[in-house]
Design a protein around this nucleic acid. Structure first.
Length: 247
DNA sequence: CGGCGGGCAATG
DNA sequence: CATTGCCCGCCG
């Protein structure tokens, strides 16, 4: 078992799962890693059962036990963190033991599924060996078209890193899957295959945001970004805190 | 073309 | 379970 033994996760107690936990939402554990969210505010998603908040050393995951994937993964990137992102790729994927077995993807689900294990918070962003290892949690993965993952999506990840290298301050990135009624599943645990993937990039210094919205399929090219408001419309999730008018 | 970064699977 | 070789797409 690969220990999630980084400083951040060491401070994160393992959630207790019992019947009452399914009925009454637990207090947010994102409160223990607010640094990954703009102004410390996690996205406002409509409440739903079987959602778990997981903090890691360099990113935070809202996991969905129905799809057995993350719903979104949040990061804060800086020029410094990208300059530090020169770790050797760990390449050791693992099922995340902090999730109940019925809610999580297992390695066998992806094996010979025809889909790759696609990072939401990319391995290439990770600034420390611990963060690199943690990024291979299946709680950070969705079944992704192999060609799209290694091609256009990889390009978007690298473009994002290049942007951050030139940014003046904090850049918040939120990445996640979008499912449709017809979304297929893989493996015995029926891990849902996303129809679309998005990556929201928000530069807190300039207060500019843009969104990469890509179909999870063969032949998909890098599409022109869409607006933040369009992302909210398509997902129903308010990812960024509403700006409080100053006076 | 080679290097790099996203992966995969076979092998002891 | 770690190592190794391989595939693919993108870019300079």
């Amino acid at each position: 078992m690969l220990a999630l033994s980084g400083p951040a996760s060491a401070r994160t107690p393992t959630p207790i799962y019992d019947s009452s936990a399914l009925l009454t939402p637990q207090p947010t554990s994102f409160s223990q890693c607010p640094q990954f969210f703009a102004r410390g505010s996690p996205p406002a998603a409509p409440p739903a059962p079987r959602r778990r908040e997981l903090c890691y050393e360099a990113f935070a995951v809202l996991h969905d036990g129905v799809s057995r994937t993350p719903l979104y993964v949040a990061q804060r990137l800086t020029r410094r963190s990208i300059e530090d992102a020169d770790e050797r790729r760990a390449d050791r994927f693992f099922a995340d033991a902090r999730l109940p077995s019925g809610e999580r993807a297992e390695l066998d689900d992806y094996k010979r599924s025809g889909y790759s294990r696609g990072h939401m918070a990319p391995a290439g962003d990770m600034p420390t060996p611990t963060a690199m290892a943690q990024s291979f949690s299946l709680a950070n993965m969705v079944p992704q078209n192999i060609q799209h993952n290694g091609g256009p999506w990889s390009k978007i990840e690298q473009d994002t890193r290049q942007y951050v290298l030139r940014a003046k301050g904090d850049v918040y990135v939120i990445t996640g899957p979008v499912f449709t009624e017809s979304s297929p599943t893989i493996g015995r645990n029926a891990v849902k295959v996303p129809t679309y993937l998005y990556k929201l990039v928000y530069d807190a210094t300039t207060q500019r945001a843009w969104v990469h919205w890509q179909a999870n399929r063969e032949g998909e090219r890098v599409s022109p970004p869409i607006s933040y408001q369009e992302l909210v419309k398509r997902t129903g999730i308010e990812f960024l805190p509403k700006v409080v008018p100053q006076h």
